[in-house]
Design a protein around this nucleic acid. Structure first.
Length: 804
RNA sequence: GAGUCUAUAGCUCAGUUGGUUAGAGCGCAUCGUUGACAUCGAUGAGGUCAGAGGUCCGAGUCCUCUUAGACUCACCA
């Protein structure tokens, strides 16, 4: 018999599914809709195994929901605008967005993105994803740009989106404001400099800082109210090493034992500076401009210099005047931009914000209305919301993104909105026919800022519910059924989606959230955004091991847990595929002389009914787990039913009937009927995990049977019914028979004897089994044990003896 | 500094609301294999459930503390 070759067959079935629209959403179906808010992966480079991991989880679950009677709505998007994509294009083409005319740069981005769409789609399809590819979206598409801009305009009109010049978290490499969620801590080497300040009585006093370059922006000095050393200085004036005079204040935030116990407050070195500025209403002294170069307000020597240059310059300068008394090398955590690793500065700029601090309570209430799987992920969300300190900065000083759709009146500065019909709009290259609502001037200047990608992808439920309307005449309703995603973007994507849904619909965006963990390469080694999993590439893994084996391996650990990439699991997947192929071929060959007939429990031998019932129970148990978004238990349940009950026991038990009985014998037909229906169940319950091999087997036999669907993926999840329940008496006997089979095998194995070795007499010593009660099982038992004769003797305990 | 999670066999993990003798796969050992399958079958060894205390008739499971690790947040002058 030909071996199964996944490398050709997987492609073949993927094409078959596409050609036949097997996974198409059917708007006319009466089944309840199950809708998935698939994460649109950011187009920022290659997809890595971490993507494969979490997307496979959703894929497997989606297949279960389809089989269990839902009209599955499974779209797919690509998040292909904004900073991450820009950075990809910049590195790939070796250009800088800032060096090119905006239109030209955007065109280059669009070209690059197109290639990536194809690559991404190819990968998902090579894994056998059951997505309806007619429902594919791209966040840079005109429809979605319109939707995003429209939503912005509504938020602006309600006063929820606002523009403000204020200190914002700023990345000097990316030249843009960033959101709190995009900042991550990094350990950096630094130096604590003890600088000489002068008191009113001309006495010198030391203040430690790691940011001497900000000295020109020093607006105050703080000590701790409990610090007896300095308390008497509060209220007096102090002179900085540069000669500026500032006042000394007291505040609890000062740590007595850190540095010299005295802190300078510079606008702005960190968030504490910002807090003090607001609290004590200091005047700002802004010395860093948007390029993170020092301006005219800074010390003349450092003007025009970057932060690192300036630090060196000013240290040299102060040293030359002997104003640094001590340098202490330290390692400390610095907030950096997660995309590029650059330390974040706080810079004053005009940015657009969405109010989120005002609605923390509402958001927390929404979090309660959503089912979180696993439950513990909800606490991460709550912790994030409770700790928010900034409104959501939604604008970015970048090029390739969805423009903030506003104009400014050059006469009076008023914000002018475009007409809805003018959307999508790029205010830099397009104009609006609206005029200034205040002074009616038509002299307008377009906004150059673009949206943070999350502002658009945060609308994904609405995007999904409006996709491809001619295919989905019934609108997909919000809340959608499921948001699947990984845990690293709880604070971004999940949070922003809930915020936007709150403002837009005052409704939760989805009923359930299923959060995947991360795939780890080795103990403690994450797949980082930079290296993207190194040499382990999804494409190679799939082509060398097969999609089915990879899918199987990805479902090994529980939802939400970080999991190691385990070559063993892939091997197990391969073995399962092989085992299923072999077992099925055996079953199908056993069905050669079989005419399919309706399944009638009373026409089945007890052991046959037992096996069939077991297949239904397994399906039912799996369903319980699947409904809780648990894919790993169902996987193991299906494997152990198939491997142990079906292969190791049942197939061996019925071989004698298959080989030796006439086609017309009811006992043979009973076995064949059981095989016929059980194998269908087995294929269905395995199909979410290993969709290719199950389709291969299904197509080789079942697809041509009358009354059966044309694909295993269109079958129904097996349902348990009372009529297929065996009696408890039979169950008891079967339990004993399985034990006896096991004992015979052990006995043979212990003596180094081939399991197929015939036995003259098998003697069963048993407390209550009798010949009549074994009547229905005797033939099978002879077959599986190879015993020509079976004797039963009464005995307090179960034991067996063999005579060869 | 705060929060969340994790700690079970050599490895990777199960262990549902506390209930007999703690499970699986891999690995290991021994044996077997001409009738679906060596990507196989059978049998077996291997665990004081991180540590200490507590509640209970009974704790891997609940509570407290300790230790180690991961993640998130805060601090980052």
């Amino acid at each position: 018999m030909a071996k199964y070759d996944p490398s050709s067959q997987e492609k073949h079935w993927q094409q078959f599914w596409l050609d036949n629209g097997i996974y198409h959403f059917n708007p006319k179906s009466p089944k309840p809709i199950y809708s998935i808010d698939t994460p649109p992966p950011t187009v920022s480079g290659k997809l890595h195994m971490g993507h494969v991991f979490s997307y496979t989880h959703t894929e497997v679950l989606a297949r279960y929901f389809r089989l269990s009677g839902h009209n599955l709505y499974y779209p797919f998007g690509m998040d292909d605008n904004g900073l991450p994509t820009e950075r990809l294009v910049e590195t790939e083409l070796g250009i800088k967005g800032s060096d090119l005319p905006r239109n030209e740069f955007i065109q280059k981005c669009l070209n690059t993105v197109d290639q990536y769409h194809q690559k991404y789609r190819d990968l998902w399809q090579s894994l056998g994803f059951s997505v309806d590819w007619r429902l594919e979206y791209s966040t840079i598409s005109p429809e979605i740009r319109t939707l995003s801009q429209k939503n912005f305009i509504q938020l602006f009109q309600k006063g929820i989106a606002y523009r403000q010049e204020s200190p914002a978290l700023w990345c000097s490499t990316c030249q843009t404001a960033v959101a709190q969620a995009e900042v991550e801590d990094k350990q950096k080497d630094s130096i604590f400099y003890d600088l000489v300040f002068t008191l009113e009585d001309n006495k010198e006093i030391l203040i430690a800082t790691t940011r001497p370059e900000l000295l020109s922006a020093c607006v105050a000095v703080f000590v701790n109210p409990k610090d007896k050393r300095y308390l008497k200085l509060v209220g007096t004036t102090i002179t900085t090493p540069l000669g500026d005079k500032v006042k000394i204040f007291k505040d609890d935030k000062v740590q007595i034992d850190k540095g010299t116990g005295i802190v300078m407050c510079c606008t702005y070195g960190d968030e504490t500076d910002l807090f003090w500025k607001k609290q004590y209403n200091f005047d700002e002294k802004i010395i860093l401009d948007k390029n993170c170069k020092f301006n005219q307000l800074a010390l003349s020597q450092i003007q025009g210099q970057s932060v690192t240059q300036a630090r060196k310059t000013i240290v040299d300068y102060l040293n030359s005047k002997n104003l640094i008394k001590k340098e202490l090398a330290i390692v400390h955590d610095v907030g950096c931009h997660e995309r590029c690793g650059t330390p974040i500065e706080i810079i004053n700029t005009f940015q657009w914000f969405i109010k989120v601090l005002d609605i923390k309570e509402d958001i927390l209430k929404f979090a309660d209305q959503i089912n979180w799987y696993p439950k513990t992920m909800k606490s991460r969300f709550i912790a994030w919301v409770e700790n928010l300190k900034w409104d959501w900065a939604i604008s970015r000083d970048r090029f390739y993104g969805i423009s903030v759709p506003v104009f400014y009146c050059t006469a009076c500065g008023e914000v002018v909105l475009p007409k809805d019909s003018e959307l999508p709009i790029d205010p830099l290259s397009q104009s609006t026919s609206n005029t200034c609502p205040k002074c009616h001037s038509s002299e307008l200047k377009g906004e150059h800022l673009v949206f943070d990608t999350w502002f658009t992808s945060g609308n994904s439920p609405e995007i999904n519910s409006n996709l491809n309307q001619n295919l989905t005449d019934k609108k997909i309703k919000i809340p959608m059924s499921l948001r699947p995603q990984a845990h690293d973007i709880i604070r971004t994507w999940a949070f922003y989606t809930i915020v936007l849904s709150f403002y837009k619909n005052n409704q939760i965006p989805w009923k359930d959230v299923a959060i995947s963990g991360h795939l780890l390469l080795r103990k403690g080694e994450k797949i980082s955004k930079r290296t993207g999993g190194g040499t382990i590439r999804p494409e190679t893994e799939i082509s060398t091991h097969s999609a089915d084996a990879i899918r199987y391996a990805m479902c090994s650990a529980s939802l939400g847990l970080d999991t190691y990439y385990d070559a063993n699991e892939i091997q197990n997947g391969k073995k399962l595929v092989n085992k299923l192929f072999n077992a099925s071929n055996f079953v199908i060959s056993a069905l050669k002389d079989y005419q399919p007939q309706p399944l009638n429990p009373s026409a089945l031998l007890p052991i046959d009914l037992w096996l069939y019932q077991k297949s239904l129970e397994t399906a039912q148990d799996m369903a319980k787990y699947f409904q809780k978004y648990d894919y790993s238990h169902p996987r193991d349940l299906s494997v152990s039913f198939f491997w142990e009950n079906f292969c190791d026991y049942y197939l061996e038990i019925i071989k004698k009937r298959i080989y030796e009985l006439k086609p017309s014998d009811p006992q043979k037909i009973s076995a064949q009927t059981t095989l016929y229906y059980s194998l269908q169940n087995i294929l269905t319950i395995f199909s979410p995990f290993i969709p290719h091999i199950t389709e291969e087997i299904y197509q080789s036999y079942f697809a041509s049977q009358s009354g059966l669907p044309r694909s295993v993926h269109l079958t129904s999840w097996p349902k348990i019914t009372k009529e297929f329940k065996i009696t408890s008496d039979h169950q008891k006997i079967i339990d004993e028979i399985l034990k006896i089979i096991s004992l015979v095998r052990a006995e043979k194995s212990k003596n180094g004897i081939n399991l197929a070795q015939p036995i003259d007499i098998l003697t069963i010593n048993h407390p209550w089994l009798t010949s009549p009660s074994l009547q229905d099982f005797l033939f099978d038992l002879q077959g599986v044990t190879r015993a020509s004769q079976i004797k039963i003797q009464k005995s307090p305990d179960l034991s067996i003896s063999l005579k060869y």
